[in-house]
Design a protein around this nucleic acid. Structure first.
Lengths: 210, 210
DNA sequence: CGTTAATGTTAGCGCTTACTTACATTAAAC
DNA sequence: GTTTAATGTAAGTAAGCGCTAACATTAACG
């Protein structure tokens, strides 16, 4: 039961740290939530801080995005961006506990949190940037800094996610998610200038006349 | 000296709360930083929590953006967005301490923090959205949801700001700010597709020859 | 001067916290 | 069936916390 006990403590740690922050969580409560004596917690982790680090490490692993890139080749630009956006939002949702911790502890544990952010954002930015770069070389996309573009794109969604996840009530959360994804992607695909892409693509185009 | 003492305490509170969070800050330290006896702190604020609330209230006031809107009328679209972006980043910088507090305490004090966010983001989103709406009615912009667009635009910059402010070292911070603003605005103005907007011509097929 | 309001100094209370010590219990392995 | 490793129980320590009590000091004002 050793493995199991350790896991249960880490699980309880994730839950409580994300809910109450590092200082707001007590070892008593974590142990209780894990169904374990407080002493057992200290037998597995020498200190509360070590438990915190292990909790982050344990849960910050994220599967690579590499699987997505090949699929994108077969998709139209707009559709590819939509898929990326959806996947990205899904991954953020799956790790929302961890993002809470990042938010509340970033100033106390900048180094550790930066590591997470690096894994979380850096990987996606890199993948998206190289996707942009490929389309630029083919002449499909105009010239711009692919890394900045990737940051902007993911930044829009990250901002949207954190707002919805942490600022609104559960009931109304992500009510218009599809619409938001569509619009955000639309900005990236066609910009906000009046000229419409080929008719029927976005279904809107009410005003071409200047 | 009453006013002055109270102000100094609030100032010290802002500094420490933003650096260490609510639980991480002690009344002893705040008092010391304010150059005041701890007891004096409690004579002005009945509890640490009250001091926290007052600190937020005091510093969350933000001058309205209304002054900016008329100016925008005289600017080209791209230039207007650039100005908005610059002003927005300036305001975020000016209130970075408060944003730190928001980040670290949002899960513990959701109500209070939401109020700030409302003032901070809501106001700017509203202003920008009505700007978009005006241009849509004139036919300058294509049809899209102005509120979602405003959120996306500001979200890009908010995300960029928080990343630079809290994730990078001071030395390299905002090194390429102008370039980022230019690119971000560019995405909004012309999109990422290769064809530059040429008046009258239906440009940009969404994915020619993929 | 004497009054008054604001602040300082010192000491400490009551509580919670992270963490420890000493010893008992379980259960699987040999 | 004895050993061994993991866990439990109970009690407690040392430190820090928010906050208070009692009294002294300052300074502005009439």
């Amino acid at each position: 039961m050793t493995r199991n006990t350790r896991d249960r403590i880490l699980e309880a740690g994730l839950t409580l740290f994300s809910k109450k922050g590092f200082l707001g969580s007590t070892t008593r409560e974590i142990a209780k939530k894990a169904g374990v004596a407080e002493l057992t917690l200290f037998r597995h982790f020498s200190s509360k801080e070590r438990l915190f680090e292990e909790t982050i490490k344990r849960h910050s692993f994220l599967p690579a995005l590499k699987g997505l890139l090949p699929e994108l080749k077969d998709l139209a630009y707009r559709e590819a961006l939509t898929q990326i956006a959806i996947r990205y939002l899904e991954r953020l949702s799956a790790r929302s506990e961890l993002i809470k911790i990042m938010h509340s502890e970033i100033h106390s544990y900048p180094t550790k949190v930066k590591e997470i952010k690096q894994k979380f954002l850096g990987e996606m930015v890199g993948a998206l940037a190289s996707y942009f770069r490929g389309l630029q070389e083919r002449g499909t996309l105009r010239d711009f800094d692919p890394v900045i573009a990737a940051r902007a794109f993911l930044g829009m969604f990250f901002s949207y996610f954190t707002f919805e996840e942490f600022m609104t009530d559960k009931k109304q959360r992500f009510a218009q998610k599809d619409a938001v994804v569509r619009e955000f992607v639309g900005f990236f695909v066609s910009g906000t200038v009046a000229q419409e892409p080929e008719p029927g693509v976005s279904g809107k185009g009410k005003s071409q006349s200047l």
